[in-house]
Nucleic acid binder design. Sequence first.
DNA 1: TGGGGTTAT
DNA 2: ATAACCC
Length: 452
Amino acid sequence: MERAEAGVSVGSPVHDRVMPAGSSSSRVIVHVDLDCFYAQVEMISNPELKGKPLGVQQKYLVVTCNYEARELGVKKLMNVRDAKEKCPQLVLVNGEDLTRYRETSYKVTELLEEFSPVVERLGFDENFVDLTEMVEKRLQRLPSDDVAALTVSGHVYNNQSINLHDVLHIRLLVGSQIAAEMREAMYNQLGLTGCAGVASNKLLAKLVSGIFKPNQQTVLLPESSQDLIHSLKHVKEMPGIGYKTAKRLEALGISSVHDLQTVSSKILEKELGIPIAQRIQKLSFGEDNSPVTPSGPPQSFSEEDSLKKCSSEVEAKSKIQELLASLLNRVCQDGRKPHTIRLIIRRYSSEKHCSRESRQCSIPSHIIQKLGTGNYDVMTPMVDILMKLFRSMVNVKMPFHLTLLSVCFCNLKSLNTTKKGTIDYYLTPSLSTTSCSGKHSFKMKDIHMEDF
DNA sequence: TGGGGTTAT
DNA sequence: ATAACCC
């Protein structure tokens, strides 16, 4: 932590720009949101698609589309038939295999991590970055006279005017410059465009990133935060208030942000429980103290396939084998070893909301050891385990109708639990630097004196 | 509604 | 193991 020395050079212009020592309050957060991500990846894979209305299809849904398609009336999650009706020239590509989207998504996160290591992923196409420290560093080496020449990058929410004497404005403005550099890097290095929102917390950064849409950015100054949250027409639009909570709020007669701000906290706590009540009521005021939590490598890998109908054990087994084969490839690439496997199903039901059931178990250690070696058949014992999990959920002697099968690997461990600074750390081949097929490839790890 | 992900209980 | 949330 590089904080300004408190009490030194009191009142000097430079020190007026940094936060008081020990104050952890005001942060600078950026939310980066890629434009129609899957469609962008597809247009990069096949540049002939550029300029044409493009939709990405999964099963019978257009899950996302480019802006050309949007202008012709295609919406996200639109039925393929409706989309084709609205827009007969619509070009569709299948997007059920997420491999390239996932790989590109991690490239974006890694690029952002180069700016600051504190990056939190939200889905495949959004990232939060805590810029507080980076902004502080830039301000500390900025000559006092240069403050007057600072300019914002991109839009300012509400067109609010910037006060260069206000330390919070200055910090957010520097945040906007870093956001612009991030978007520039994404475009130059990966060919991707996106939006960014800069604000003092994750909620506000996310809300403000969507104000100017495609490929633009917006900064929110504190004086406009109430305008931003009141621009939401319904509490359901508040990130963190989902379908269920919105329904329960509606039952209480709460539909607007103002309703949620002014409802008695006692009533809210009684209805939703203290933790949720307090959290969402703070959200309604634009307050969100949740930290940007570095996502790091994924906690789980899963592959799923929705089906019209799966009603026999043989069908299920064949689907499960497909899903498992893909997962084994992914897990091998990752290098870490899953210690738990889970099977998830969705049963056909006429009215009920898509409820899933799952069974999981530990993966026997002799199988874990064979993972990624390529030589031994790990499919057969794993499929056996999965079919046992299957039969523990589905009585195969009775008729059944499943509409989804999914296999998930979780509880990932880096075998290499080896501590830095021990001799083993430098003698153990790192799986992450070794190809799946490569037998004895070592990469020398960097030696840092701080590790000892 | 797809094909993913996360955290809390 | 499920339920909620996010995309």
